[in-house]
């Protein structure tokens, strides 16, 4: 297992380099993307723009610019073009918000997805299953911004049950922290709950016809034990892997819409603002940050997979 992890970390480095190059090149290809023009201001004369270009190094070849930027990322001195703020300090400040959102939502959708998936499978074909099928399809097909808008309008604005967006630090006031996050957690989870419950339902219905489930019944185990230990236990394995990747994407700033809608100053919102301003360094760092978590959690998931299913051997 040790060798597996080392190799995975090695491949992580390759992934990060590849992603950073791609992101860097995309911004070179965007029309009107010349950062010097934007940094110099709206009515700057050509001389000022030339100056800016020289001081920021935009006159150098792309690969020199790339290497310089990467160097700054690694010693933590990279700053954004538009606000000249240290990008890594920004992310450090925003990360707890995103983590709060991701942890709560991740646990919520995992738990609810399992509950609904199991119920749906055990009552397959009956009205409970049909109702859950319809609900999960609604959850999967409704965009987050619609859910968020409806929640904000009814629950926050009209009935004032929950606060209207914003973030309160966990260390400042845990109750208000949770109170402010309940709507974002729910809005973000609905899609995943619907999706996970559908996947789990079909896994369970496949597993329940396995020979070893018949064996478990033939042994005289209680139905409850047959379902929990032999059906659900085996059906959950793919769900774990799904969860790891989805969770990583959210942590890495993937919940852009949710963070914007509920005015949460997280990594996703930071990335969204930076993209709007065609600000390369923050976008570059956030992208690498997200890729890092995806590769990291993929490794964790693979190790977990091997622990849950002894037939799987870790070979990278």
């Amino acid at each position: 297992m040790g060798r597996f992890i080392v190799r995975r970390l090695g491949s992580m480095a390759i992934v990060l380099v590849a992603i950073s190059i791609l992101t860097f090149l995309i911004f070179q290809a965007i029309p009107n993307g010349d950062p010097a023009v934007r940094i110099a201001g709206r009515h700057a004369d050509p001389a000022t723009i030339r100056d800016v270009r020289k001081t920021w190094g935009f006159d150098k070849p792309i690969y020199v610019q790339y290497v310089k930027t990467m160097g700054k990322i690694f010693d933590g001195s990279v700053i954004s073009y538009t606000q000249s703020l240290n990008v890594e300090d920004e992310i450090k400040r925003d990360f707890p918000v995103t983590l709060s959102l991701a942890l709560g939502a991740g646990l919520l959708w995992l738990f609810m997805g399992i509950v609904f998936g199991v119920i749906s499978a055990l009552f397959a074909g009956r009205w409970t299953d049909r109702a859950l099928t319809v609900l999960s399809l609604i959850g999967i097909s409704t965009p987050v911004f619609v859910i968020a808008a409806l929640m904000l309008y009814f629950l926050a604005f009209k009935w004032s049950i929950f606060p209207n967006g914003d973030y309160v630090k966990l260390t400042d006031d845990p109750v208000q922290w949770a109170n402010h996050l309940i709507m974002p957690w729910t809005a973000l989870s609905l899609l995943f709950i619907g999706f996970y419950s559908r996947v789990l339902r079909s896994n369970i219905l496949d597993t329940i016809n396995e020979d070893y489930v018949r064996t478990a019944r033939a042994k005289g185990l209680t139905e409850r034990r047959v379902i929990v230990r032999h059906v659900v236990r085996n059906s959950l394995i793919p769900i774990i892997s799904l969860w790891g990747l989805d969770f990583a994407a959210i942590i890495g700033g993937g919940a852009i819409i949710t963070e914007k809608a509920f005015n949460l100053p997280g990594v996703g919102a930071f990335a969204a603002n930076s993209i709007g301003q065609l600000d390369v360094p923050p976008v570059l760092v956030v992208t690498m940050f997200g890729a890092f978590f995806v590769v990291l959690l993929q490794t964790v998931v693979d190790v977990l997979y091997a622990l849950l299913d002894p037939r799987i051997r870790l070979t990278a």
Partner: peptide, 21 residues
């Protein structure tokens, strides 16, 4: 309570009759 205790059963395919995990 009778299954596995008074009447037990062996199945055809031992490759799939045991839970792999």
């Amino acid at each position: 309570k009778i299954r596995g205790n008074d009447i037990a059963m062996i199945f055809q395919d031992p490759m799939t009759a045991l839970n792999p995990v």
